[in-house]
Amino acid sequence: MTDSLHVEEQDDRMVVTLDRPERRNAIDQAMVDALHAVCERLEREPRILILTGSDGVFASGADIAELRERTAADAANGINDTIFSRIAALPMPVIAALDGYALGGGAELAYAADLRVGTPRLRIGNPETGLGIIAAAGALWRLPQLVGLPLATELVLTGRVLTGEEALAAGLVSDLFAPGELLTGAHALADRIAANDPLATRLTKQVLREPAERHPAAEREAQAVLFESPEKRRRMTQFLERRSRR
């Protein structure tokens, strides 16, 4: 798609590799623009998205050379948080496959995914205050949802970086794989999702993200749609027929 992303397309998923190895996959404006183009495709043609990085690094952060020159007007435009929120809102699940550094904006991109897997050599965290800024692209509200407020507070105030094992213990990643098996593990997770009804999967993701005051109305509305779905009848009939043959 661009020099900064490598895109592999399959019928039920898209694998997007951040590919700026000379900058440890730092997220610059060109990469942000390319990710918007990916989102446009996946909004029109919903599929699972697997996000990963090249050369044993997910993303070392935002591109500091660009970030240093940004102004208050750029902050108001929310360049990175806009694309991360768009990725989080994609119709189908997003899996982040994390190896090596996932720092600053790279960590915030990972937090925007629905599911995260990693390797033992993963290093993930938000050292932004050491650079004179805050983690303004999702860490200050997504990270507490993922690991709880006490740990999130420690991480963003101290800049402590978690190892892969620490991220697993905190529930920030759901599994660890050897680096050579990371994408295989991510695809196995995608396979389990893809085996389910896509409409039920999309509505499950949608309802999961509804605010508290929308429950249980959101579940009832989604279930009403699914109860009228031919796929629901087909899958349940198939289940009953299998059980009757036992």
Rank of each mutant, 00 (worst) to 15 (best):
M1V: 13
T2M: 01
S4A: 15
L5I: 15
L5G: 05
E9R: 14
D12V: 12
R13G: 00
R23H: 14
R24S: 10
A26V: 08
V32L: 08
A34C: 10
L42D: 00
A59P: 03
G61P: 07
A62Y: 10
D63R: 02
D74G: 04
N77D: 14
G78N: 12
D81F: 05
I83L: 09
I83T: 13
V94Y: 07
A112C: 07
D114H: 15
L115I: 13
V117S: 02
T119Y: 01
P120I: 11
R121S: 15
G125P: 04
N126E: 11
I134A: 13
I134T: 15
A135K: 10
A137Y: 02
G138H: 09
G138E: 09
E154Q: 13
L157G: 02
T158F: 10
E165L: 08
E165Y: 07
L168F: 11
G171D: 07
V173F: 02
S174H: 08
P179Q: 06
H187T: 12
H187N: 09
L189E: 01
A190Q: 07
A194D: 03
L208T: 06
L208K: 08
L208N: 11
A218E: 08
E219D: 11
V225C: 00
F227T: 06
S229Q: 06
T237V: 08
E241C: 04
E241S: 09
R245T: 14
